[in-house]
């Protein structure tokens, strides 16, 4: 099966090329990217966040914003009330929903950034009614995956490249505040549940707690989940 993820594509063209409208590219400012890497590596669990973009470039992530969440080495779930609080807070800061609520970001254990069936299902269910949205996954091993979906016009989705945009001035690290945000919002889940056989191999390499007794159960519903592809149901 061919790999669908990609290493971060470092721009080889002058920065102006990043502003081309020819093809969409998901770009991170250096501080946003640094914060995402920091949060990914701050603990053993996945982490999730919203990407906040500039008003004039909705594919340029300027800030990574976490909300209260429960996470394990192989899952992350946002607290519903925290999501609502996040919306309220962002509106109070005069941002529009398209700037703060369209970029769903999370990390994966291991080397694969390929979205799981749960990831795809969430992306379709939660963000499928938005005019457009992006799911971005960063693997611990460095691979990235970005999918842009849109529901306007004929609808559809496509995988888009990812880059870091150094074209504008940027501030330095803010590790103390990033750590405080991590500790405030990310609650580790102590008892991970079952892992489907499709992704078992990639998940098990670094967390032996995932070796549960029922991985080989032929009736494991996760096996069904792993085969389900909601993309086939979209549009």
């Amino acid at each position: 099966m061919p790999r669908t993820t990609n290493r971060l594509c470092w721009p080889t063209e002058p920065p102006a090329a990043l502003d081309s409208d020819d093809a969409p590219v998901l770009r991170f400012t250096p501080p946003a990217w640094a914060k995402l890497l920091y949060l990914r590596d701050a603990g053993p669990t996945e982490i999730g966040a919203f990407g906040i973009t500039s008003a004039d470039d909705l594919l340029r992530v300027e800030e990574i914003a976490t909300v209260a969440q429960t996470a394990s080495v192989a899952s992350v779930a946002f607290d519903d009330a925290a999501v609502a609080d996040f919306f309220d807070d962002q509106i109070d800061q005069s941002r529009r929903p398209e700037q703060f609520a369209r970029m769903w970001i999370h990390t994966h254990p291991g080397d694969s950034a390929d979205p799981s069936s749960v990831d795809k299902s969430t992306f379709a269910r939660v963000f499928g009614r938005c005019d457009w949205s992006v799911m971005f996954i960063l693997a611990r091993g460095g691979d990235t995956y970005a999918r842009l979906q849109f529901s306007v016009g004929p609808g559809g989705s496509l995988q888009i490249p990812v880059a870091i945009d150094y074209s504008r001035a940027f501030p330095g690290s803010d590790a103390a505040n990033w750590q405080a945000e991590y500790e405030r919002n990310v609650t580790p889940q102590r008892q991970p549940a079952r892992i489907g056989r499709a992704e078992r191999a990639s998940a098990l390499f670094d967390d032996h707690d995932l070796l549960t007794d029922d991985l080989n159960d032929p009736d494991d519903p996760s096996a069904i989940t792993a085969d389900y592809d909601p993309w086939e149901d979209m549009h």
Partner: peptide, 13 residues
Amino acid sequence: KIEGALAGEIPSA
């Protein structure tokens, strides 16, 4: 229910 997980993992917020 904004959640990501490997298949079979059951997120519990």
